[in-house]
Write a protein that binds this DNA or RNA. Structure first.
Length: 361
RNA sequence: GCUGGGAUGGCGGAGUGGACAAUCGCUCGGGACUGUAAAUCCCGCGUCGCAAGACUACCUAGGUUCGAAUCCUAGUCCCAGCA
């Protein structure tokens, strides 16, 4: 790991980091103060969604998405590449070399291009700009995968160009992240990585779908990207992942992660808990260093202890298991908020532990 | 006391002679979720069995019928109205 910090407007943030997904400029059920209190150093917002849902004028008026949502910490904007994939899947759009044609809310056809993505991200005024890429679908044929890599590289070139234009225009120089595609084809991944390095970025992202057919994480791809990137590059696991997957990738040199899991899982009644008595006792070297806690089980309905003793979040330091079970049972929104806060704190503790491990070595 | 209505699985509540181990909802148990179309979705839930299947079941006891949760008789309990 050569890069030790992530540059944000509010100062340097120690790497590695996990940024949860505030896709639509909100981390569902929380507000920005809540997020900060979980010791989460930054969030990811989504270019495609914000482009659709918030007008350019309003963003300009606020001087960026950070001001809009009153979030002064780290900010990364995703390009919309992941949405390009879902559009294609839905069949409600079309991907061409020029860009993506999609139907907006009102049914109007709109063209979304790599240039639009980058320039809009400058408007969002985030710390890292991610280039628009074409997602290699899981199970894609070699031919299909090659096609997405070809387009991803061509879009990356255009993005870089637009980025340089925007740097001149604004005088700002956020990180620029290239995204590696190529599915499970290691040669393709390598080729894509090299081509992107040739274009020149501040870092590269592990794009596409990182989970193999057998449901396990594809570490081979992660390794190929890491091994073929310059040492000063930031390595970013896009949409990664489960706690143990983050630990593994961090050991390979990845330093930035984002994922919907902690927040979505919280809303779906899956809380993460460390198999440890206290925060100090957490050992991420152990194979099963964490497990799941389902908050509304009957057996918890009368327990007065907190969800986890190895946690200092708002939930664990103030409320009992029975109270949380009650909140879930009566479907009160605060159940989701407390659960989300807890999972985010779990992830921020995870990153603290990873930093400890890496700096010790 | 009289009159009418009713008693179905953990709960609510369908079914009103065969296609019923019983629609559906809830509860309960299990699973999924990875750059968020997701406070969502999937599975199970009489007993035994991995399963095919077997057995016991719709208040109780009789009865009618080839066949009853469904029809008849008696009983028990509950509810409503009237005394």
């Amino acid at each position: 790991m050569s890069q030790k910090f992530f540059r944000s407007k509010n100062g340097n943030i120690q790497l590695p980091v996990f940024f949860p997904d505030a896709t639509r400029a909100v981390l569902r059920t929380l507000d920005s103060v809540d997020i900060k209190n979980t010791k989460t150093p930054g969030v990811l917002v989504n270019t495609y969604h914000l482009y659709e849902e918030i007008g350019i004028k309003l963003i300009k008026k606020h001087g960026g998405i950070g001001n809009f949502m009153n979030w002064k910490e780290g900010l990364i904007s995703d390009s919309g590449g992941f949405q390009v994939m879902s559009i294609a899947k839905k069949g409600s759009g079309k991907i061409s070399d020029e860009g993506v044609i999609f139907k907006s809310e009102g049914g109007k056809k709109e063209l979304f291009t790599p240039e639009i993505s980058v320039s809009f991200q400058f408007l969002l005024n985030t710390d890292m700009v991610v280039v628009l890429d074409e997602f290699t679908e899981p199970g894609a044929s070699l031919e299909k995968a090659k096609e997405t890599v070809r387009r991803t590289i061509s879009w990356a070139k255009r993005s870089k160009k637009e980025y340089e234009k925007q740097v001149k225009l604004t005088g700002r120089k956020p990180y620029l992240l290239g995204v590696v595609q190529g599915g499970d084809y290691l040669d393709l991944r390598k080729e894509c990585t090299k081509a992107l390095v040739e274009i020149g970025f501040d870092g590269l992202g592990y794009g596409g779908w990182p989970i193999k057919d057998d449901k396990t994480f594809n570490y081979d791809v992660a390794r190929v990207i890491a091994e073929n990137s310059p040492s000063n590059y930031l390595l970013y696991g896009l949409g990664v992942g489960k706690p143990h997957e983050i630990v593994e990738c961090a050991r390979m040199g990845y330093t930035i992660f984002d994922c919907v899991l902690p927040t979505r899982d919280a809303r779906h009644k899956r809380l993460y808990v460390y198999n440890a008595k206290s925060i100090k006792d957490i050992d991420i070297k152990k194979k099963d260093f964490y497990s799941y806690y389902v908050p509304d089980k009957e057996k918890y309905a009368s327990q007065i202890d907190p969800v986890s003793s190895a946690c200092d979040c708002l939930l664990c330091s103030n409320y009992s298991r029975s109270y949380l079970a009650h909140l879930f049972k009566i479907k009160d929104a605060s159940a989701l908020r407390l659960a989300t806060i807890h999972n985010l704190r779990f992830y921020s503790i995870l990153m603290e532990k990873i930093r400890e491990e890496i700096f010790k070595e």
